[in-house]
Amino acid sequence: MKKAKILCAANVSDDAYAYICERIAGRFGAVNCERETDESLLGGFIVLYDGKIYDMSLRTQLQAMRGSLDSKE
């Protein structure tokens, strides 16, 4: 069975984590999920699966927003 590593922000509860695993299974089939907490994410999570990174963290979204602001200067 393939393995998926899920980096979660500190404020992600088990319920939310379970929901994420459920969605991963629904999308990729049976996957062995492994959780890891990363406070720097500020919020949201990052999924590492099959050599790909699915970043839904708040930090990345803020950095993207900031990047667009800097490019407008």
Binding site: I20, R23, M56
Partner: peptide, 27 residues
């Protein structure tokens, strides 16, 4: 934001990831 994100927000992110970014559907 770090303090105010709720489980619902996290679940919405998951939905957005699997429904929009990965164009939805069962794996």
């Amino acid at each position: 934001l770090g303090h105010s994100i709720t489980d619902a927000d996290t679940k919405k992110m998951a939905d957005r990831l699997f429904d929009e970014s990965l164009s939805g559907g069962k794996a």
